[in-house]
Design a protein around this nucleic acid. Structure first.
Length: 822
RNA sequence: GCCCGGGUGGCGAAACAGGUAGACGCAAGGGACUUAAAAUCCCUCGAUCCGUAAGGGUCGUGCCGGUUCGAUUCCGGCCCCGGGCACCA
């Protein structure tokens, strides 16, 4: 053992040993209980960043802890390798997206290995490889067969100069990021997955995921947004046509004073044919970004179409307006407007001097004053024919029944959740296994012809997909009629790959099926770890895919992730570490300077996993200082520890003072166990520091304290092992605690050591802390009061006679309620 | 705009189920060692007031209010910061 801590040599040697002995390669043939610990797979952007280090360190702490609890633990790793940045980099650097991606993966894999994670690298997945994405194409075809796939027109951002579709991210202030051209909205045919078929189950099962953070479940619940209401038809004046709307407030139906339709609504288009003003208006307002945030914050404007509808119950004539805030993608692209009882409609009506007709009174029968705002709560109906006088709750089903009788409406359940559009007009993605036959129309690729290979050796010269001009890819034959056909050139949304990768890790080498029985051995994932930014989209899509795979008989469970930990961001100087802000810290540099254990310890210690983590260079040095102290403790106590490890002194020989020390140490261990279970790892690191402080104190009399020093250090090394596996593994074997700390069992609390006869009680007077007393363990109120009244600082305020009430919280405090003496 | 979080010393944080606010660490100040520096070790460290001191008082967990013997913790209202909003991943 060297006198100085030299992490680089020590860590790389240990990592070499782990690799050679295949220490973390796991199989399904184990008698141990299994545990699947998964961190979200990285996008291979070029370098591992601190967010990755944090994510995988948290995952590794959990993995190694589970190993020490005696389980068969799978921790895999892979690459979410398709995506937009590869195309951008390829354009810039004049190389193929594939070359760029594989180079990045090699670089990043090296860094992850240097961090010493207990990963089973034999199961590595790269999603841009055909052996992976072919099964995604296969699943898509199964979904197509089962009616879960359909095609519909949907809006995209179109760059008229670059002649290409832009991602939302590539639209800056309404202009293309490269061309600076004003972006247009275009409707194109795209593939959709019917996630809404699973809306109810996705919602219902949120209540069956106690291992998920409540905030994530709440976000998903709101995102799915199940609401009960009515679908209502408003017949058009002088026409056989009807406008269909959905409302959650049929009780306000008599207050409708206009209808609002989307600029993309077919009726708006029709009306515009004869109305140039309207045509201009529609033109102007259809080019907005479709992001919900943009729509919600934009100024609400509209224009009358000149068309009218007939109120389904009153037969009143209702004007139809085009409004920029109504989305075609949402429901039917039309809404009924009740300015008196909806705040947005209210503001719109004020702006355009549309009538505001009150139909709901407050529950106490007082009429609302409509001069400033709408009354949006439930109340009592008026101005509503036969329904006047009913409460909103009573009126809703009755109004719906009347609409049903008239065949102009019915009760309806509406979801905010929309079907998942999976087409992307990009090159670097999984080809959609569909083709167009001039005779047969849209035809799925035959299963035997999978995978549809994405040509990799492609240099990008302009932002348009090279697939569009590549006959070798485009030209094929129709599996139905054998005639010439062309391939679909769109690729899948990359969320497709990340929706099932966790299942493929179980059997990555299976080349005749998507999944096999090994999937059911490991799944569901016991612990999933990733950024909170994935709380909705990725996690909802993955849950959807899992349920689809279950319904296809590929997996048995209902949910993919039993426990979820959403880790916070890594910040520096108060904002997210990112290349664009120029505030990144390189993990490679940090490891080179301090070693992987320091990096891991700092990241675990600096904040609880769910919180954002503020970077601090001096904090890193603090973590390193602790490891140096740990090393030098082992170095200076080496002979004592070696001797004691051959069992020189036994527990029965220890004295009262050492018993107190053991009580303190086992109390700390008990807290550590609780913190490990609730995954508050920062306080586990704190506790380790506390333990080392205690041990260092004990060395002042190391001869007599050999027992607690050896026991305490053995506990310390083991509880630190998941966080800093290298230094602890070295010291563990060097000091002859045992051969291999990674599979040593987690330390157990000695309940006997915790026993005590005397406790400390805080003394409060009227809730204010005034002193403390030492009392017997099961002290009564009377005795506690008596003991308290022996304290000068207590008798200063109260006497026995003035005491009105005593509150004793066992083991904590006694609160004496008494009027204060003058 | 909507949905979901968060706000505690100079800083990161802790306080398990409403019961000692600030554990552990960083920074800072003082000291030891050293020719010196680095490293290491020891001490102090929320604000403020009284006291030579020992010690004690008051205030203090974003702001305003409520419940309670007692609130960082529960309830109502507000302010600020962060995440997501369906083509960034």
């Amino acid at each position: 053992m060297q006198e100085n801590y030299q992490p680089e040599i020590l860590e790389t040697n240990i990592q070499k040993n782990w690799q050679e002995e295949k220490k973390f390669v796991v199989s399904e043939n184990s008698t141990k209980e299994n545990f699947y610990c998964l961190s979200m797979l990285p996008y291979p952007s070029g370098h591992i960043h601190m967010g990755h280090v944090r994510n995988y360190t948290i995952g590794d702490v959990i993995t190694r802890y589970q190993y020490m609890l005696g389980k068969n633990v799978l921790q895999p790793m892979g690459w979410d390798a398709f995506g937009l940045p590869a195309e951008n980099a390829a354009l810039e650097h004049k190389l193929s997206p594939a070359t760029w991606t594989y180079k990045n993966i090699a670089e990043m894999r090296k860094t992850l290995k240097r961090l010493g994670f207990a990963i089973d690298w034999s199961r590595e997945i790269t999603t841009c490889k055909p052996e992976y994405y072919r099964w995604e194409q296969w699943l898509f075809l199964r979904m197509y067969e089962k009616g879960l796939v359909y095609k519909k027109k949907s809006a995209v951002n179109w760059d008229p100069v670059d002649q290409t579709v832009l991602a939302n991210e590539q639209v800056i202030n309404g202009r293309g990021w490269r061309s600076d051209a004003l972006v247009e909205r275009r409707e194109i045919n795209q593939w959709f997955l019917k996630i809404t078929n699973y809306a109810d189950e996705l919602l219902e099962y949120l209540d069956k995921l106690p291992g998920w953070p409540e905030e994530v479940r709440a976000m998903q619940r709101n995102w799915i947004g199940r609401s009960t209401g009515a679908s209502i038809d408003f017949p058009l004046q002088n026409s056989q046509e009807k406008i269909n709307i959905f409302t959650t407030r049929p009780d306000t139906l008599f207050g409708v004073t206009y209808l609002a339709i989307s600029p993309a609504h077919p009726l708006a288009r029709t009306a515009a044919e004869k109305n140039n003003n309207l045509k201009d208006f529609i033109q102007k307002h259809q080019n907005i970004k479709s992001a919900e945030a943009d729509i919600a914050t934009l100024e609400k404007v509209g224009m009358p179409t000149g068309l009218n509808a007939i109120h389904p119950l009153t037969k009143e004539v209702i004007p139809i307006w085009v409004a920029n805030f109504v989305l075609m993608e949402y429901g039917s692209g039309a809404v009924m407007s009740v300015p008196a009882h909806d705040q947005r409609d209210f503001e719109f009506a004020k702006k355009y001097s549309l009538p505001i007709k009150g139909v709901i009174k407050l529950k106490d029968n007082k009429e609302w004053d409509f001069s400033a705002s709408a009354l949006t709560e439930y109340g009592v109906l008026y101005n509503s024919n036969m329904f006047s006088g009913l409460s909103s709750e009573e009126a809703i089903p009755k109004i719906i029944s009347q609409l049903e009788e008239l065949k102009l409406g019915q009760k309806q359940i509406h979801y905010r959740l929309r079907d998942w559009g999976v087409s992307r007009q990009r090159y670097w993605g999984t080809p959609i296994p569909m083709l167009n036959c001039p005779k047969c129309g849209t035809v799925p690729v035959a299963e035997k012809d999978l995978p549809v290979l994405l040509p990799e050796n492609v240099v990008l010269n302009d932002p348009r997909s090279p697939l569009l001009s590549m006959p070798s890819f485009l030209e094929t034959t129709c599996p139905k009629c054998g005639e010439k056909a062309t391939r679909e050139t769109d690729t899948f949304d990359t969320f497709m790959e990340s929706s099932w990768y966790y299942a493929r890790y179980c059997c990555p080498d299976q080349n005749s099926a998507m999944l096999d029985e090994r999937a059911n051995y490991w799944l569901p994932v016991d612990q999933y770890i990733g950024g909170i930014e994935h709380a909705i989209l990725h996690l909802l899509y993955a849950r959807f895919f899992f349920k689809v795979m279950r319904d296809f008989g590929l997996v048995k469970a209902d949910e993919p992730f039993t426990n979820l930990l959403t880790q916070g961001m890594v910040l520096k100087d108060g904002s997210k570490m990112s290349k664009s802000k120029g505030n990144t810290v390189s993990p490679e540099d940090m490891i080179a300077k301090y070693g992987a254990d320091t990096a891991r310890l700092f990241i675990i210690f600096a904040a609880p996993p769910e919180h954002s983590l503020e970077w601090s260079d001096s904090g890193v040095e603090g973590a390193h200082r602790f490891l140096k102290r740990l090393w030098s403790f082992a170095y200076t106590q080496k002979s004592l520890l070696l001797e004691q490890n051959e069992k020189q002194i036994s527990l029965s020989e220890i004295n009262a003072e050492q018993k107190n020390i053991r009580r303190e140490m086992h109390k700390i261990l008990k807290q550590i166990n609780a913190d490990m279970e609730r995954k508050q790892f920062n306080t586990v690191a704190s506790a380790a520091m506390k333990l080392l402080n205690i041990l260092q104190e004990l060395t002042k009399d190391s001869k007599n304290n050999a027992y607690p020093i050896q026991e305490g250090f053995s506990i310390l090394l083991r509880i630190l092992s998941p966080i800093t596996p290298h230094i602890t593994q070295y010291l563990w074997s060097e000091l002859k605690f045992g051969p291999d700390i990674t599979i040593t069992s987690w330390p157990k609390v000695d309940e006997q050591a915790l026993e005590t006869t005397a406790i400390e009680l805080m003394v409060q007077i009227n809730g204010k802390l005034r002193g403390k007393i030492t009392a017997p363990k099961n002290v009564t109120q009377e005795t506690a009061l008596e003991l308290a009244l022996r304290e000068e600082n207590i008798t200063k305020y109260v006497t026995k006679e003035t005491v009105k009430k005593i509150i004793l919280v066992p083991g904590r405090l006694i609160n004496i309620i008494a009027p204060l003496r003058n």
